[in-house]
Amino acid sequence: MKLSKMKKKNNKVKYILISIISFTVFLIIWYMVTDVFKLVKPISLPSPVKVLESFINKFTVKRPDGSTLQAHVLSSLRIVLTGYIAGSIVGVPLGIFMAWNRKADMFIRPVFDWFRSVPGMGWIPVMILIFGINIASKAAIVFAISFVAILINSYSGIKNTNPVHMWVAQTFGASNKQLLFRVAIPSALPHIFTGLRQGLNQAWASVVAAEMIGSNRGLGYMIQMNRENSRADLIIVGMLSIGLVGTILSFVLQKFEDKYVRGRH
């Protein structure tokens, strides 16, 4: 048994090594293709060294898109968090309400189904028309997109409450309100959090689109602007930053969930 355990551990180390080698090979090929053999023009694919350099410099240099990297990130975060928090505040209770109340379900759901069939990016012109080109319209786009995922998951979380738990609670004389707050909502919490996580991912992805039209700051604006400036290195820096911040956001939310939700189930 000790032997097989050691073998497992060795295997793990082996695969991590393979991953490291694979990634190194990827970087070397990238480097060879660009800097060594110059098979592609730097304008379409800069070398990894150049990307790293630009990444580090972007923290201090505002050119050519007008802001430092951290300013872009903060600007995007502000939009996303505004829209996302609004989406959660509306989406979670509305989802619960729709699942709990037959009448609300029957009347709101068709409208909601219609609303959610609109592709997220389609909200851009509508929101710009309503709010103008400003942070409000961008946050509203993020809201419209994250709200859908959040609502759907809260809704199905409540709908999936084990009826047996409800019957048991009922036989102990629980009121409807108690059934909702003591049975249905707690048991729907994992679903609700799944929705909050999906919503956050989609919110973050949508800010890029939101900023591509009429902005002067933000990661989406940054990559769009640098295409016009033909600065592929900065586009890649922008893309990697979008990926990185997105990963950090879901990681933080996941940690929060682990701490406050999973422990109780």
Partner: peptide
Amino acid sequence: NAIISPVFEILRPIPAIAWVPM
């Protein structure tokens, strides 16, 4: 998985829209 995942994990969180300029 060991071979593909490093690059995949870097690309995965980048929204498709962010690929437009590239």
